[in-house]
Simulated scan of single mutants.
Amino acid sequence: MSGESVSGDAKELSAKQIRKRKRREPPPDPEHTRGLVDAHTHLAACGGRTAESVTEILDHAERVGVEQVVTVADDMVDARWAVQAAHWDDRAFAAVGLHPTHAADLDEAARAELNEMVDDDRVVAVGETGLDYYWTVHSESCADPVTQKDAFAWHIDLAKRSGKPLMIHNRDADRDILDVLAAEGAPETVILHCFSGDIEMARECIARGYLLSFSGTVTFVNAAELREAAALTPEDQVLVETDAPFLTPHPYRGQPNQSYCLPYTARGLAEVRGVSPERMAAVLGANARRAYGLPLR
């Protein structure tokens, strides 16, 4: 083998290693943007499994202006963690429910426990619930659509009985999400977490008074239609979230996400909507505090 070939192989390997290392590196701190609330994150999945680790994550977030977070779970185990985290640190609040992919776990014991959890003062929302048709065809363990709809209806009722906002997960199920909400009767506050629908979906949600929560996906290069939806959402119906550790905003897509990255998305929304980052942060923070009933800090 020639020396030139070895050198080429070495360069190729080095480039792969660099890309792999970059994917593991957290993004740098964004510019401080005061007053933000992360409307949807997963502290446990970000490493927040102890009081100390939760405090570390939230200290980091607060240093860049993210003052409060709502931490969410996918299953019953993580729901318990979310409630614990909300008691460990007064900057954290919890949403409890079963992700639609886990809808088959909604047995009598789970219903009883969720009924008890939602009465906790640190629990500010029911969810994330809803419909996910992507995983019904990509995972053998995902709950089927009928089971998902039944669980969604139960969570809608829980939100209405508790008087707490309903946090919705929607993937490839726009029409059915709207139809189930119409059939069951939506609670007073409905939040479309990580909004991903098309313009028509956005318009119908807006007309119904639902809140649209935008994650880092709104900053992705290929998300022009999502930015259009963000631009037309009324000021009092827009939220911002990380969905951490997923959906890290551009230009750090694919790298680890945490609540401290929220200002990148908030500033992206400010640009889309033609307002200053300070104005955008004030609106987003006020909307989240109103929707979830969070105290001022």
Score class of each variant (00 low, 15 high):
Trp88Gln: 00
Ala39Arg: 09
Phe220Tyr: 15
Ala182Asn: 11
Lys149Ala: 15
Glu4Phe: 12
Ala229Ser: 14
Gly293Arg: 09
Ala112Arg: 10
His87Leu: 00
Phe152Arg: 01
Gly293Val: 03
Asp107Val: 07
Asp75Lys: 06
Pro256Val: 08
Arg111Met: 11
Pro277Tyr: 09
Val54Gln: 04
Arg279Ser: 11
Cys205Asp: 10
Arg290His: 09
Ala73Trp: 02
Met117Cys: 04
Ala85His: 05
Glu200Gln: 13
Asp132Ser: 11
Val69Asp: 04
Ala282Asn: 03
Val124Arg: 15
Asp198Glu: 06
Gly254Met: 10
Glu12His: 03
Pro251Thr: 05
Ile199His: 05
Ala223Lys: 03
Arg171Met: 08
Ala109Ser: 14
Asp29Gln: 10
Glu140Phe: 02
Ala291Arg: 08
Arg273Ser: 09
Glu12Asn: 02
Arg289Ala: 01
Arg267Pro: 05
His138Glu: 13
Arg253His: 12
Ala92His: 01
Leu58Tyr: 13
Asp59Ala: 11
His60Glu: 13
Glu113Leu: 13
Cys194Gln: 07
Ala159Met: 11
Leu294Asp: 00
Glu116Ser: 12
Glu25Tyr: 03
Arg49Cys: 06
Tyr134Asn: 08
Val70Ser: 01
Glu200Tyr: 04
Ala94Asp: 10
Thr41Val: 13
Arg161Gln: 14
Leu284Gln: 13
Val272His: 07
Gly47Met: 08
Asn115Glu: 13
Leu247Gln: 04
Gly185Tyr: 00
Gly127Val: 07
Ala73Ile: 05
Gly130Trp: 08
Glu184Arg: 04
Gly268Trp: 01
Gly3Trp: 07
Asp59Leu: 06
Pro295Ile: 00
Gln84Met: 00
Met167Ser: 13
Glu278Tyr: 03
Leu43Glu: 02
Gly293Asn: 05
Asp9Glu: 03
Ala110Phe: 11
Leu181Asp: 01
Thr219Asn: 12
Leu269Phe: 07
Pro234Leu: 09
Ile57Leu: 15
Ala224Thr: 15
His155Gln: 03
Lys160Trp: 00
Ala51Asn: 00
Val238Met: 14
Cys46Lys: 10
Pro100Gly: 10
Glu271Gln: 14
Ser213Ala: 13
Glu278Lys: 11
Ala86Trp: 03
His99Met: 07
Thr219Cys: 12
Ser53Val: 00
Glu235Ser: 14
Leu269Tyr: 06
Ala244Ser: 15
Glu113Cys: 03
His102Ser: 04
Gly209Lys: 12
Leu232Ser: 04
Pro28Ser: 08
Thr71Met: 11
Ile177Gly: 01
Ala82Asp: 09
